[in-house]
């Protein structure tokens, strides 16, 4: 679309301001001496609305540069990777989250085709739903949330599979290796080293076994 940058920016400011005014409509305004919770939000939103209108007007009058094309493939891939990480972390553990994020993020490296974009778009939608706290519960308890989660996984899997068909095997293998490697590094550094609490299943257990069975005895041996 050949619409000026400023018009987009101005419209965004205006929409945000109107949302703020609408949601904050019932916050008490108060008096300057005893301000209510709504005093500053309302003042800010009106100011933002005015500035947004001004920016839009400048865009209409000046006809500056149009907005550059968006890199949709890369955008959706990266945002999906983050959303997937968030969704998988507490359900499946850190290893699955890291591997999933690397694979999904990887689809952004060479630009994906339309099928993948659609899949990633759906994945983003379901992942967002899945992550919104309270939302799934409000509309019908855990089973709906599970369905949403499964749909998200399916959409992600479709994108990854379709992508895997197009890229050479070496690229994919490199990415899997990278994911596994990063997973091990992250767990050793962050979970084991810095003591951050994060649900992790496979690698932590394996690492603990390794520590107890091999590393600690060796260290003891050396110290003796």
């Amino acid at each position: 679309m050949n619409v000026d940058k400023d018009i987009w920016a101005g419209l965004f400011f205006m929409v945000l301001a109107m949302l703020g005014l609408w949601i904050g409509a019932d916050y008490a305004f108060g008096t300057p001496a005893r301000m209510g919770a709504g005093f500053l939000p309302k003042v800010l939103c009106w100011a933002l609305l005015g500035l947004g209108a001004l920016v839009t007007l400048i865009g209409v009058v000046k006809r500056g540069e149009p907005m550059e094309a968006w890199a949709w493939g890369e955008l959706v891939a990266i945002l999906d990777a983050v959303l997937l990480f968030a969704a998988a972390l507490e359900v499946l553990g850190l290893e699955a989250a890291i591997l999933g994020a690397v694979l999904i993020g990887g689809t952004g490296a060479p630009s994906p085709n339309h099928f993948e974009r659609v899949c990633l778009g759906f994945a983003a939608f379901f992942l967002t739903l899945f992550l919104l706290p309270g939302f799934a519960v409000k509309i019908g308890g855990g089973s709906i949330q599970m369905v949403i989660g499964l749909l998200a996984v399916a959409a992600c899997a479709a994108a990854i599979l379709s992508h895997a068909r197009r890229v050479p095997f070496g690229v994919l293998a490199e990415r899997v290796l990278l994911g596994v490697g990063l997973g091990i590094v992250c767990i050793i550094v962050f979970v084991d080293g810095l003591g951050l609490t994060m649900k992790s299943v496979i690698v932590t257990d394996a690492w603990n076994v390794l520590k107890d069975a091999v590393i600690r005895p060796v260290i003891r041996l050396i110290i003796r």
Partner: peptide
């Protein structure tokens, strides 16, 4: 970039 991405995620989460 996958490493940067992961550090971002883990950083925010923790």
């Amino acid at each position: 970039f996958p490493a940067i991405l992961l550090f971002c995620c883990i950083g925010v989460y923790s």
